[in-house]
Amino acid sequence: MFDLLIQYEWMRNALYAGVIIGFISPLVGVYLVVRRLSLIADALAHVTLSGVAAGLLMQKEVAWFQGVNPLYTGMFFSLAGSMFVEKVRSLYRSYQELAIPILLSGGIGLGVVLISAADGFNVDIAGYLFGSILAVDEGELTLIAGIGILVVLFFLFFYKEMFALSFDEEHAVLTGISRKIINLLFMLVVALVIAASIRVVGILLVSALMTIPVAASLQFTNSFRQTLIWSVVFSQLAVFSGLFAAYYLDWASGGTIVLVSVAILLLILAVKRIVRIFRRNPVS
């Protein structure tokens, strides 16, 4: 694999993109999961789809837009969607999950209408839906790297505050942590991560890297730090296997990434079970 890296630029792009996404997705994922917001990622991904469709439509209709990567319009829609989430959450304090179906169906609805209005695209929309890690180009890698840096900076600055807010929002607010600003920034970060990971796992599978590695870690970790570290480890494992499978076996990268994540989760559940049986009946 290493000679491939030296030889082919696209392979390097794919690898870098995978490593960055495999790092930032589970990072935001841990916070989404412990705050019971894992579905928000899916909802925002669907909004991103309508953004991508809008971008593709504009590429077709407006000459000036030809050079603009639809990932940027996708990102823009996703950011707008994330602010809508916060708005709905504050409007319906006791129905906070209501934002999810609204965004999910709204996003798909708009996406489908835009695609039909364009009367089809000559780009492969499946690449956006299911990811195509080997097709990441230089410009997209720059976007992904930029988003990666922003996400890392966010957590460097707000690790403490995010932990306190996730564990006990009321107490965090009472100790002087500003809930509104940090929650809004976090939702913007989630939106950025989704836009960045579309190329790697695809819109329909975006939430997989954010939730499945976290679900696996939660099975055996005690501390928040451990959970963060193991989630990233599992997610990197999944991304590398996806890349490998895409290149050597010609399998869909996004699908492979998700399947490997699920396999890791199942493996951990099995190991846990075996350990429990052995503890109950120790071999003498």
Binding site: F163, A164, F167, A172, T175, I177, L218, T221, S223, F224
Partner: peptide, 18 residues
């Protein structure tokens, strides 16, 4: 949330964050 992955130490430390 009883499933929250945090140790006693991490929770107590959050009292200092503000």
């Amino acid at each position: 949330n009883l499933g929250f992955p945090a140790t006693v130490k991490e929770v107590v430390a959050s009292g200092l964050y503000g």
